[in-house]
Write a protein that binds this DNA or RNA. Structure first.
Lengths: 118, 118
DNA sequence: GAAATAAGCAACCAAATCGTTGCACATCGC
DNA sequence: GCGATGTGCAACGATTTGGTTGCTTATTTC
C-alpha cells in the first residue's frame, strides 16, 4: 500500500445526493451486523446469513437488497444458493465523504475560533 | 495537531448499536445539506437555516432535532432565536466506526485473497 | 403597547421502512 | 423421481419518517 492514496473518482461521494443513500443503508443495526458477518465470516448464502439472526430469512433478503442498492455488497447465484460478499468501493466512498465533511467542520471550527479570538 | 491521534473513548462508536442511529441521522439529503450549511456558514437560527430551503421551517426544525438526538449538533436559545451549531465529537465517532469496519473489510479481503492463492 | 419576527406545539397525511406469512419455483442428493 | 433445501415473489400490517398547515407563545422594535 502506497503512503499517499488518491481516491479514485468512481468511489467518491461528490455531494449530499450521493452520500445520503449510502449512510441511510448503513443506518440500520441489522444491516451493520450483516456487514460485520460478511466481513468476519466471508461470503455467505442468505440462509447462512439468516441463521442465528433475530429476523426471518426474507427480512435478511430485504436488507441485503438495500445494501446491494447502495453498492455495499454484491451477489452471485451459485447453484440453488445466492452468495453475497462485500463490495469495498462504496464503503470507500462513504469514508471519503466523511473525510470531506470532517475537513469542512475542522475548517469551520477553526474559523470560528479565530473569529472569537480577534 | 499531533501526528498520532488516539481517539478518545467517548467519541468512539463501539458497535453497530451505537453507530446505526448515527448513520441513520446522516442518511438524509436535507440533513447533510443542513450540516454543510452550518459548516460553511457557521452557527445559525432556524429561520436562517430554513431560508432558501426546499422545505418549511417546521421540517427544518424536525431535521435539526434528529441531528441533535444523534449528537451531531447542539442548540442554544438566544433571545427569541435558537441558534444551532456543529458538535464535532459524534462525527468523529462515525468516522471512527467507518475506520473500524474499513479495517475489518481490508482484513477480510486480504484473508480471502490469501485463501484463493494458496 | 402594538406590529412584526422567531420559535414551539399539535394534528394530520402520504409514503417509506421493517417485519411478517404463505406459497411457488429451482436445484441438489439419494 | 422425490424429498429436502435454498431462494423468489406477493400480499399484508404496524410503525416510522418526512412533510404539511394552523395556531399559540415569546421576544424585539418602533
Amino acid at each position: 500500500m502506497s503512503p499517499v492514496e488518491i481516491t479514485p473518482r468512481h468511489v467518491r461521494a461528490r455531494d449530499a445526493r450521493d452520500a445520503a443513500p449510502l449512510f441511510a443503508a448503513l443506518g440500520d443495526e441489522t444491516r451493520l451486523a450483516l456487514l460485520g458477518r460478511l466481513s468476519s465470516g466471508g461470503p455467505g448464502s442468505i440462509a447462512h446469513l439468516a441463521h442465528g439472526s433475530k429476523v426471518s430469512r426474507q427480512a435478511i433478503t430485504k436488507h441485503l437488497e438495500v445494501l446491494s442498492f447502495a453498492g455495499l455488497v454484491t451477489s452471485e447465484k451459485q447453484g440453488r444458493e445466492r452468495v453475497w460478499k462485500l463490495a469495498p468501493e462504496r464503503l470507500a466512498a462513504a469514508h471519503a465523504y466523511l473525510d470531506h465533511i470532517s475537513r469542512q467542520w475542522d475548517d469551520a471550527l477553526e474559523r470560528l475560533k479565530t473569529f472569537v479570538e480577534e
